[in-house]
Amino acid sequence: MAAAAAAGAGPEMVRGQVFDVGPRYTNLSYIGEGAYGMVCSAYDNVNKVRVAIKKISPFEHQTYCQRTLREIKILLRFRHENIIGINDIIRAPTIEQMKDVYIVQDLMETDLYKLLKTQHLSNDHICYFLYQILRGLKYIHSANVLHRDLKPSNLLLNTTCDLKICDFGLARVADPDHDHTGFLTEYVATRWYRAPEIMLNSKGYTKSIDIWSVGCILAEMLSNRPIFPGKHYLDQLNHILGILGSPSQEDLNCIINLKARNYLLSLPHKNKVPWNRLFPNADSKALDLLDKMLTFNPHKRIEVEQALAHPYLEQYYDPSDEPIAEAPFKFDMELDDLPKEKLKELIFEETARFQPGYRS
């Protein structure tokens, strides 16, 4: 834990890192770190609560700039109880001085990944967590956004079992017609939660990839272990087919990539493993919904509104309290091709509203 900075004593240090967030945020305490930044909790002297502050230093890398800009653009436009918001952003007053960006968010005690390492969940908890994931996802999908990296560590939890989806750095506007060349190379989302079509096709992607990830998360809540822990690309596919069985001819016809289709045709026939054999203690309604989410063919996979209306979630289902976005989200430009200098300018502009004396 960093010592509390005395008023006016300059930035606090946390594990050798400068955290320049005073005077409003003090009493910093280390939480963890990701690929390009550290997260601390801090005391907000204005709202009198502890908050989470993520320090991001992305400006050396085009990919990190892209992810940072995506996350900020999306989260500043989203407003939903099951999606983490941005409360404040701290950065230098000029673009030349801006080396880091500090993002202030609600402090959540833990995440689903940490929880599943230590606790076996009751059916009631599984049901409530799944409902909140789908409630947040309904809003995301209504904005025409794909999260693309749903996994237990991106689901934040607090002691009252509130759940918030975080990390929109890989999110995209849904565009089933656009052929994202190089899709697989830039697709760094965790393999275990990846839909089979991501490994088999490169053309376009749809909201059904997020539903697949939610199915993987439900299976993990039922058993405290990942359902498809593939060691590499082909191993991942083999794990999936080992449980779902061989795809039907109709399902194979959806695979545009001939090499991928021929690979699947070359494999020995596998039978589907019954879900109640894998999860003998699970609620039968939970397994019915799991089956509809972990469907090989993305066109037959359940959609988020149908999933919310499934009998497993009937005690929570309330369409009048499951809000959607006001308007579909649009990125003005494809960020993939922009140089990091341009992305830095866009991050600077996007964060201006939090600067003292800002006038829109």
Rank of each mutant, 00 (worst) to 15 (best):
A2M: 02
A3T: 04
A5Y: 15
A5M: 09
A5E: 08
A6K: 13
A7R: 05
A9D: 08
A9V: 11
A9T: 08
G10R: 01
E12D: 00
V14P: 02
R15S: 00
R15K: 02
G16N: 13
Q17I: 09
V18D: 00
V18G: 00
V18A: 11
V18S: 14
D20P: 05
G22M: 12
R24L: 01
Y25F: 00
Y25M: 12
Y25D: 06
Y25W: 11
N27K: 01
L28S: 08
L28M: 01
S29G: 09
Y30N: 01
Y30H: 13
I31K: 14
I31V: 15
G32R: 05
G34K: 06
G34D: 07
A35T: 00
A35K: 02
Y36R: 07
M38E: 08
C40P: 15
S41C: 06
A42Y: 15
Y43H: 12
D44R: 11
D44C: 11
N45C: 08
N45A: 13
V46G: 10
V46M: 11
V46Y: 15
N47E: 06
A52Q: 05
A52K: 02
A52E: 02
K54C: 08
I56D: 04
S57V: 09
E60P: 15
H61A: 09
Q62E: 06
T63P: 03
Y64M: 10
Y64C: 06
Q66M: 06
R67E: 02
R67Q: 10
T68N: 05
L69R: 15
L69H: 15
R70I: 08
R70F: 08
R70N: 08
I72G: 10
K73V: 06
L75I: 15
L75K: 10
L76S: 14
R77F: 11
R77S: 14
E81M: 11
E81Y: 13
I83M: 09
I83K: 10
I84W: 04
I86Y: 11
N87E: 13
N87M: 12
I89Y: 10
I89A: 11
I89G: 13
I90F: 01
R91A: 14
A92I: 15
A92G: 15
P93W: 14
P93Y: 13
T94E: 09
T94F: 09
T94K: 11
Q97C: 11
Q97M: 13
Q97A: 09
M98W: 14
K99F: 09
K99L: 15
K99Y: 09
K99Q: 03
V101Q: 06
V101D: 05
Y102Q: 08
I103H: 06
V104M: 09
V104K: 06
V104E: 05
V104G: 08
L107P: 15
L107S: 05
D111P: 07
D111M: 03
L112M: 01
K114F: 07
L115W: 12
L115A: 11
L115F: 14
K117C: 07
K117A: 07
K117L: 10
T118A: 06
T118L: 09
T118E: 08
Q119P: 09
H120L: 00
S122M: 10
N123I: 01
D124N: 00
D124R: 09
F129R: 05
L130N: 06
L130Y: 06
Y131L: 11
Y131E: 12
R135K: 11
L137Y: 06
L137F: 12
L137T: 11
H141W: 12
A143R: 09
V145F: 04
L146Y: 11
L146I: 13
R148G: 01
R148P: 02
L150F: 10
K151F: 02
K151R: 01
P152A: 05
P152F: 06
S153G: 13
N154D: 04
N154R: 02
L155P: 03
L156H: 05
L156A: 02
L156Y: 03
L156I: 13
L157A: 06
N158G: 06
N158D: 05
N158K: 00
C161W: 09
C161Q: 05
D162H: 14
L163D: 06
L163F: 11
D167Y: 00
D167M: 07
F168C: 08
G169L: 06
L170H: 03
A171K: 02
R172L: 00
V173S: 03
V173F: 06
P176W: 05
P176F: 07
D177N: 02
H178Y: 06
H178Q: 02
H178C: 04
D179I: 11
D179A: 00
G182R: 00
F183Y: 00
F183K: 08
L184T: 03
T185V: 04
Y187F: 00
Y187H: 05
Y187C: 02
V188L: 02
V188R: 01
A189F: 03
A189Q: 05
T190V: 04
R191K: 02
Y193P: 04
A195Y: 07
P196Y: 03
P196I: 04
E197W: 03
N201A: 10
N201F: 09
S202T: 02
S202R: 01
G204V: 00
G204H: 10
G204W: 01
G204D: 13
Y205K: 01
T206P: 01
S208W: 06
D210G: 06
S213K: 04
V214K: 02
G215W: 05
C216P: 02
C216V: 07
A219E: 00
L222G: 01
L222Q: 01
L222N: 08
N224R: 06
R225M: 12
R225N: 14
P226Y: 05
I227Y: 06
P229G: 04
P229V: 04
P229Q: 09
K231H: 14
H232D: 11
Y233D: 00
L234C: 07
L234P: 02
D235M: 05
D235P: 02
Q236K: 01
Q236S: 06
L237M: 06
L237A: 05
L237S: 03
N238F: 03
N238W: 03
N238T: 02
N238Q: 07
H239M: 10
H239C: 09
L241R: 12
L241G: 04
I243A: 13
I243P: 04
G245Q: 01
G245I: 07
S246C: 01
P247T: 01
P247E: 06
S248E: 11
Q249I: 11
Q249D: 14
E250T: 15
D251C: 11
N253L: 06
N253F: 12
N257G: 08
N257S: 03
N257E: 05
K259H: 09
A260R: 11
N262K: 00
N262V: 11
Y263C: 03
Y263W: 12
Y263N: 00
L264H: 08
L265W: 14
S266A: 13
S266L: 14
S266D: 13
P268C: 09
K270N: 00
N271C: 09
N271W: 10
K272H: 12
K272G: 09
K272N: 00
V273R: 14
V273P: 15
P274H: 02
W275N: 03
W275C: 00
N276M: 14
N276R: 11
R277N: 13
R277Q: 10
P280M: 04
P280H: 00
P280S: 03
N281L: 11
N281C: 12
N281Y: 00
D283C: 15
D283L: 13
D283E: 00
A286H: 10
A286K: 12
L287C: 12
K292Y: 09
K292L: 11
T295W: 09
T295M: 10
F296D: 04
N297T: 00
P298W: 12
P298Y: 15
H299I: 10
I302F: 00
E303T: 14
V304T: 13
E305L: 13
E305M: 14
Q306V: 15
Q306W: 15
A307L: 11
A307S: 01
L308F: 14
A309N: 14
A309P: 09
P311E: 11
Y312D: 03
L313F: 12
E314Q: 13
Q315R: 08
Y316H: 13
Y316A: 15
D318R: 14
P319E: 08
P319K: 11
P319S: 05
P319M: 06
P319F: 10
S320F: 08
P323E: 10
P323C: 14
A325C: 14
P328T: 00
P328R: 08
F329I: 00
F329D: 12
F329P: 14
K330Y: 15
F331R: 15
F331E: 08
D332F: 14
E334C: 15
E334L: 14
L335E: 13
D336N: 02
D336A: 05
L338N: 09
L338E: 12
P339D: 05
P339C: 11
E341Q: 13
K342F: 15
K342W: 14
L343P: 07
L343N: 09
K344D: 04
E345P: 14
E345R: 13
E345L: 12
L346S: 08
E350F: 15
E350V: 02
T351K: 10
R353M: 05
R353A: 13
Q355N: 13
P356N: 14
P356K: 13
G357F: 15
Y358R: 08
Y358W: 06
R359F: 13
R359N: 15
S360E: 02
